[in-house]
């Protein structure tokens, strides 16, 4: 039996087919929740936003255009916008600055420091990135979304996405090495 396409599934959701909705939910719930959790760093907020994303899938499925984007891109785009709304509401929005981080071409000391970085350190450092850089990094690195789709989620061009990624990675690298130095781990090496 041929699996229904995304367009067919969404059409069935529009007609009130709960089975089609459950199919999309089981496929997309985990990636969308993980994306929102990495964006907000808070489980309760992640669950609330994810719930709103899937509520919109049920009530606003007619806005999905299969010719413009994949379903996962559309859902991630809704999640991204809801995250930005939340950050603005809580005055947590960090706009993307044009100041570029200096590129590091040395490896040894930084690599030694990076070996001691924990998952919690990374989570904290991610929260300090501007939203667009964090989102670009999460989408391309953790979510495994293609650069074209990630650019679609952020509503930017591919070169702009690559710029966000490069700046985000540089800043993250600096934040992680700074946090390591601050906790005195450099002294151990």
């Amino acid at each position: 039996m041929v699996a229904p396409t995304e367009a067919e599934l969404v059409q069935r959701i529009l007609e009130g087919d709960e089975f089609a909705y459950r199919t999309v939910l089981s496929d997309q719930l985990a990636p969308v929740t993980r994306y929102v959790f990495r964006m907000t760093g808070n489980l309760t907020e992640a669950e609330d936003i994810t719930q709103e994303v899937f509520l919109r899938l049920w009530t606003q499925a007619d806005r999905f255009d299969p010719n413009k984007a994949r379903l996962t891109t559309w859902l991630h785009n809704i999640a991204h916008n809801l995250c930005i709304d939340l950050f603005r509401k809580q005055s947590r929005f960090v706009p993307d600055e044009d100041i570029d981080e200096p590129a590091s071409e040395t490896s040894d000391p930084i690599n030694t420091l990076m070996a001691d970085v924990s998952g919690e350190d990374v989570k904290r450092a991610l929260q300090q990135l501007p939203e667009s850089q964090r989102s670009a990094l999460v989408l391309c690195y953790y979510q495994g979304i293609s650069n074209r789709d990630a650019a679609g989620v952020l509503e930017v061009t591919i070169p702009a996405l690559e710029s966000l990624l490069a700046r985000g990675r540089r800043k993250l690298r600096r934040l992680l090495t700074e946090s390591d130095q601050a906790t005195g781990r450099i002294d151990e090496h």
Binding site: R38, S107, I110, N111, M114, V117, V122, L172, L176
Partner: peptide, 12 residues
Amino acid sequence: IHEPLDKALDRH
């Protein structure tokens, strides 16, 4: 040079 950052990211 860049691999350690990816390894750190994987820990999250």
